[in-house]
């Protein structure tokens, strides 16, 4: 293009206008070719980046279909919530079944120990002893039966923890998807910057500080408190310290 330009200047100085116009056309063609080629490459790359987003563009036609792997990921995460909730409920159901059993056995044992003490101290009448005799027999039978119930419940509580394996697998899949989407996003951002460069578009300066935080927006559990540093507390002790510094 540089050669053509200096040639153009020469032609104009020589007054050869027809040749100069021809040269201008050549310059223009070269520029267009280059631009079309770059736009073509960009379109291709953009298409790839969007495809890698796991969004099925055909699904837009059929709204009833699962729209994308994103939607699938949402389903998967909902599945995790359901599974963990069911496990928590199953565990608590079983614990609630066990509590009265343990409490009854404990109470009866305490009563019997009391009576047994009277027997040892020889404070017991023969009729009372015969009653105690029967009660101890009943208690032993009942204890045996109820410990079976308890151990059955304990193994069900253990089994209820199987969600850990299942949810772990599901969550790992979602993590993989998130990583892939992140890569595609980075790719898209690179594309966008190239489009800006070729077309000469200057992105407007967006003022990031315009959003004034007047509400305390909840963010859920902090998963990396160590990395967060001083803005989060690491446990109840720090909450108590903070509150007492405020006069609580």
């Amino acid at each position: 293009m540089r050669n053509t330009t200096s040639e153009l200047v020469d032609k104009i100085e020589q007054g050869a206008l027809a040749d100069a116009v021809n040269l201008l056309q050549t310059i223009n063609d070269a520029r267009n070719r280059d631009l079309y080629q770059q736009v073509g490459q960009l379109t291709r790359a953009l298409h790839d980046a969007i495809r890698d987003f796991h969004v099925d563009t055909r699904a837009a036609v059929d709204q009833d279909k699962t729209l994308s792997e994103m939607a699938d990921a949402t389903d998967r995460l909902n599945y995790v919530i359901n599974l963990t909730q069911n496990a928590a409920n199953r565990t608590m159901d079983k614990v609630e079944e066990c509590l009265p059993i343990v409490s009854e056995l404990g109470k009866e044992a305490a009563l019997l120990r009391n009576e047994w003490g009277r027997l040892i101290r020889r404070e017991m009448k023969p009729q009372e002893f015969r009653d105690l005799y029967r009660r101890i027999d009943t208690f032993l039978v009942e204890t045996e039966r109820q410990t079976d119930v308890l151990s059955g419940n304990f193994s069900e509580i253990t089994l209820a923890q199987d969600y850990q394996d299942l949810t772990g697998q599901v969550v790992k899949k979602v993590i993989t998807l998130v990583h892939e989407v992140e890569d595609s996003l980075v790719h898209l951002v690179k594309m966008a910057s190239q489009v800006d460069r070729i077309t000469g578009i200057q992105p407007k300066d967006t003022d990031k500080n315009t959003e004034i935080i007047d509400k305390q927006i909840p963010e859920g559990p902090v998963v990396n408190a160590e990395k967060r540093g001083v803005d989060v507390v690491s446990g109840q002790d720090e909450v108590d310290d903070l509150l007492s510094s405020l006069g609580f």
């Binding site: 305390q216 909840p218 963010e219 859920g220 559990p221 902090v222 408190a225 001083v230 803005d231 989060v232 507390v233 690491s234 909450v239 903070l242 509150l243």
Partner: peptide, 8 residues
């Protein structure tokens, strides 16, 4: 679960 000092 909110544990930001600011929130507390």
């Amino acid at each position: 679960a909110e544990s930001k000092r600011e929130q507390i």
